[in-house]
Computed example of a mutant assay.
Amino acid sequence: MKRIVLFLATNLAVLVVLSIVMNIIMTVFGVDFGSYTGLLIFAAIFGFGGAFISLFLSKWMAKRSTGAKVIQQPRNDAERWLLDTVRKQSQKASIPMPEVAIYDSPEPNAFATGASKNSSLVAVSTGLLRSMSKDEVEAVLAHEVSHIANGDMVTLTLIQGVVNTFVIFLARVVAGLINNALRGNQQGGSHHGGGGFVYFGLVILFEVLFGALASLIVFYFSRQREYRADAGAARLVGPNKMIAALQRLAQGKESQLDDKMLAFGIKGKLAKGELMMTHPPIEKRIAALRHGSY
């Protein structure tokens, strides 16, 4: 229930903010959103705007959706060790010290998120701490620190923004062309055939279709950044520790993180084909490390 409320609240905030931005652009610059140029600007506002608002809210959302508690003052040796380990790795990776949190979950997993390297979060599950050795946990932390050092959160947001923009734009262009053809009115109305139940129904249909195809692009880049984070962890703590951590993760079930957090976890969900996966198969990640792909 909490996740649903957070999802609805976030999307409502996105719509309100972007609607205000659109009104300002229309008033100040006189942009005609009925033209192809205006439509592209509209698509970019919602495509990039939604992606970046989600990025800026990502740390707040992550804490609330998982119940992660940031370690302010270590209460025991385990928390003290976590902070010390992340601090050493951050210094080695030349990034500011992230917040370190623990969230209650039997699933062995961890994630990194945040709007920038200066405002990042590394969180690990209680299941990971219970089921892994210190060397394995150290490798998992190094993987997440590498995500931050590589700027993966911003990179994936930019890719998502580009993809969103073209999905929104192309869905409306194709829907408009079909709608105009059905009405036998190639010249009437806006250039992209706006208006009417048929048009909006077609827009929804093509956004779903193009969005599914575009997801393959996002998934590809997500998989590549996992390889880079594994390689970064190998440089920070050594490949053997990272391989051992991945082997341990392979013994567990697929990730239970929700969709918004899934791409940021060290372990993803299984799919029928690799094209639909946010993370490469663990055996491929291990093979890459063994072949020295770092």
Rank of each mutant, 00 (worst) to 15 (best):
M1P: 02
M1D: 09
M1C: 01
M1Y: 06
I4W: 06
L6R: 02
F7A: 12
N11S: 02
L15H: 09
V16Y: 12
I25V: 15
F29M: 14
F29S: 12
G30H: 02
F33S: 03
G34V: 00
S35F: 08
T37F: 14
F42A: 12
A43T: 01
F46G: 04
A51N: 09
A51P: 10
S54H: 11
F56K: 06
K59P: 01
W60C: 07
K63R: 14
R64G: 09
S65M: 15
T66H: 04
G67N: 01
Q73G: 00
A78T: 13
A78R: 14
W81P: 00
L82I: 06
L82F: 07
D84S: 14
T85C: 03
V86S: 11
R87D: 14
Q89V: 04
S90M: 08
A93S: 07
A93L: 03
M97E: 14
P98N: 08
P98L: 11
E99Y: 07
D104S: 07
P108T: 06
N109V: 01
N109W: 02
A110Y: 09
A110W: 07
A110G: 06
F111R: 08
G114Y: 10
K117T: 13
S120D: 00
S125Y: 11
S125T: 15
L128Y: 07
L129G: 08
M132A: 14
S133C: 07
K134M: 03
D135M: 03
V140C: 06
L141P: 11
V145L: 10
N150D: 13
T155N: 10
T155G: 11
T157K: 05
L158P: 00
V162H: 01
V162M: 10
V163Y: 03
V163W: 04
N164K: 06
N164P: 03
T165V: 03
F166V: 04
F166Y: 12
V167G: 05
A171Q: 11
R172T: 00
R172N: 14
G176P: 10
L177F: 05
I178Q: 08
L182F: 13
G184Y: 01
N185C: 00
Q186Y: 10
Q186V: 10
Q186R: 01
Q187T: 12
H192W: 15
G193Q: 08
F197Y: 05
Y199F: 15
L202K: 06
F206N: 01
E207F: 01
V208G: 03
F210Q: 06
G211D: 03
L213R: 00
L213Y: 05
S215D: 08
L216P: 05
F219P: 03
F221I: 11
R225H: 13
D230S: 10
A233S: 15
A234H: 11
R235Q: 12
V237D: 05
V237C: 09
N240V: 03
K241A: 15
I243W: 12
L249N: 10
Q251E: 15
S255A: 13
L257F: 12
D258G: 09
D259V: 11
K260L: 14
G268C: 08
L270F: 09
A271N: 11
A271G: 13
E274T: 14
T278D: 13
H279E: 05
P280C: 12
I282F: 06
I282A: 01
E283V: 08
E283Y: 13
A288N: 10
A288F: 06
A288W: 07
R290Q: 15
H291Q: 15
S293G: 00
